[in-house]
Structure formats: C-alpha cells, structure tokens
Write a protein that binds this DNA or RNA. Structure first.
Lengths: 197, 197
DNA sequence: GGTGCAGTTCAAGCGGTCTTGAACTATATG
DNA sequence: CATATAGTTCAAGACCGCTTGAACTGCACC
C-alpha cells in the first residue's frame, strides 16, 4: 500500500514552469482518491485504476491524460493503459470538447457496475473451471477403479460444496445489484450532470 | 520447480516430462487437490494451504508432515508453516495416534468457516479504514474551505456508496453462512467421522 | 517536409509475496 | 551421551504482477 506513503509528503516544490492549472492534489483529495484505490485493489483490480476513477469523479469535469498523470504522479504509459482499461469497462468516458484537440476523460458514476461486471466474469470462468475440474477428477477416479468408496464420497461432497459456494456468490451479485441500484440513483440526482460530449 | 502441473489442459495425465517422481498422488487426486488450491487462492489464501487441506480431506485419515511433503511435492519448511496456519484457523487437527510418535494431521470439514472467518476479519478492518479515510477527507475538505460545493457533494456520495457496498458485503457473509450451513450438514453425515486421538 | 504534442506499446526493472533449504531445536531411543 | 528423526525458523532467492520510460505512431499546424 504505497499510496499511503505519500499522503503526508508530496512536498515537491511547485514547478514554476508547469502549466498554471493546479498541478497538485489537495490533501483531502489525495486521501479520498487513495481510499478508492484501496477498495478497488481489494476487489482485485489495480489500485491506480481506482485512483484514476476517483480523481475523475471528484473533479466532476473531464481531465486530460496529462493532467491525470500530474495529479496522481503516474507515468505517461501507465495512464494510457489505465484509461484504456477503465474505458473498456465503461466506467469512464472519453470526450472531445468542441473547440479542443485533446481527449478528455470523465467518470461515469457506476464504478459499482465495473466491479460487479468483473466479479461476474471472474466468477463465471473461474467457478466453471473448478466444477469442471472436480467433475473430471470424479470421472478419472471412477475409471481408475479400486478407489475406496469413502474417498469417492468425499470427492462428491467437495463438488457439492463448490456448487453451494457458487450459488452463494451468484446470490451476492444479485443482492449487491439490488442494494446498490438505490445508491446509483442518488448519484444521478446530484449537481454532477455536466457530461458534455 | 514444484510440479504444479496445472498448466495446460488436464484432459489426460499423460504429461510427457512431468516430474512425477514422487507420483504417489493419483491423477484424480491431483486434479481435485489443485482445484481446491485454486479456489482457496481465489479467496486470498495461499494456494498450497488449499492443497494441503484438500489432500487431508480426501484421504480421510490423518497424514504426517512427511507424507504431505512427498505427496504434494513441497518443502519441509513449507509444510510446517502451512500446517501451522491451517491448524491455527481450525481447519485441520493435529492428532497423535496411541502407539505412534509422530504428529498426524487430519482435515476438519469446515474449510468454509475458515474462508468466511478471514473474509469477515478482512472486511471488518478494511472497510472500517476506508470509511475513516473518507470521513477524514471530508473533514479536511471542510477545514480547507473554498472547496467547490459540488465536489464536496461528490465526496459525500462516495462515502454513501462505500456504506452501501459494506452493507452488501455483510449481507453476503450472512447469506453464505446460511446457504452453506446446509452443506456442512451433508459433510457431517457421511462416512468420514474419523477423529481418533 | 518538419516540429511538437498526444497517445500507445512493451521490454526492463521494481517491489512484494511465496518457497526453499539449511541451520537450528526438540524429542525419542539405544 | 550419541544418534536419529520430527518439526521450526528465517534469510536468500524464485516468482509474478505492476509500473516505468523510452521508442514509436498519429495528428495538427506551420
């Protein structure tokens, strides 16, 4: 969790040559951004994906890649990849302002959808494979013959357990969808609907 | 190094140059054991913790550390540490047979409890911290003054979201507890009651 | 064309985790 | 006590994913 290292510090002298636009995160922003980063990391994503989304969301208006790079102290290449991931997942949106020549990126409000989506995907592929493996093991054990029946039984139970865990997981996803949809509504009400395109 | 031969499909165990030197593990066992290893890794534990538990569970009778070492092709030290972890979590039991001089380890049936327990723990400390961070960010933002009100609003919403996600998570834990308790009963019925001491 | 900036790609490096293997302790046995 | 075997500890190193930074493409304007 290196993110917490620089929440206190970051005392780099403001570069006089840097573009005048606030080159640096406010402390409260840094904390919030890192908090989201930690959550997102917890869910199996990259910490910086969460930080980027959080920054965009907090700012409320689209930023350029360069701005993100400066604010979060990331590398150019890194920002590019992070933005691509986030865009692919539909949690940020790439916009080009009429008179402008550069892309800007704005946060969609449903980070949750991304988490849910990837969890679903992971779960789908992963749990399917586990079940397939256990089924295969069972098949092999039967074919091999001379496997004590109590061991076969235990194998069977293992498969049962896997199925139940899978069910619980699906239920969770459904649940969270329901529970969170209310929050999303809240998000949409606010004064943050300035997504020009 | 360690012959995790789980690379590539496992349709047939005829992996040409697989290091099957120790080879006591039947192919179906290897698959099942690895499947559990994957699940457990998915939940944030060490893969080999899952493999050890699975082996002990499938065998149904307590094994010595040396046997585990050979069957799973692990190092002496590694097995020692893995067993200690598992025992601490209460998912295996250390037993000493009457006439014997060495410790043996037997699987408890509730791997699920361990997973749930650790999830709960992680969740507790972790989510608490996130909430604290967001609260702190809010405080700082207010103190700092001159923060645009719409940004403050968004920060607020972020905290709300965090709370909802937390609720969903708690619900999941409760759910899985309910859903899985049925399975545990199934486990307990079977012919696997071997707790000699 | 040439210059400059935005954006992408990817090999190399970094940092964190897991495993190993040897040194060590503990315990039983002759 | 000497020996042997079981079990523990931990520094060193393997391993693996993330980030970096430089080379590259693409585009706009002069």
């Amino acid at each position: 969790m290196k993110g917490y290292l620089w929440t206190g510090g970051h005392g780099s002298p403001s570069n006089p040559d840097a573009p005048v636009i606030e080159g640096r995160l406010a402390p409260w922003e840094a904390i919030a951004v890192d908090a989201v980063g930690n959550v997102i990391e917890f869910w199996g994503f990259k910490r910086n994906q969460g930080r980027v989304w959080a920054l965009l969301y907090l700012r409320g208006e689209p930023l350029t890649a360069g701005e993100i790079e400066r604010e979060l102290d990331l590398s150019k290449g890194g920002v590019s990849m992070l933005l691509r991931d986030l865009e692919r997942w539909g949690v940020i949106q790439r916009v080009r302002l009429p008179q402008d020549t550069v892309w800007r990126y704005g946060a969609e409000t449903d980070l949750v959808r991304m988490v849910r989506h990837v969890i679903e995907e992971r779960e789908a592929g992963f749990v399917a494979r586990i079940r397939a493996d256990l089924a295969e093991a069972r098949r092999l054990a039967e074919v091999a013959g001379q496997v004590p029946s109590d061991r076969l039984e235990r194998l069977e139970k293992m498969a049962t357990l896997a199925e139940h865990v899978e069910r619980a997981l699906r239920l969770f996803i459904k649940t969270s969808r329901l529970d969170v949809s209310g929050v999303l509504a809240v998000f949409r009400d606010g004064a943050s609907r300035r997504n020009e395109r």
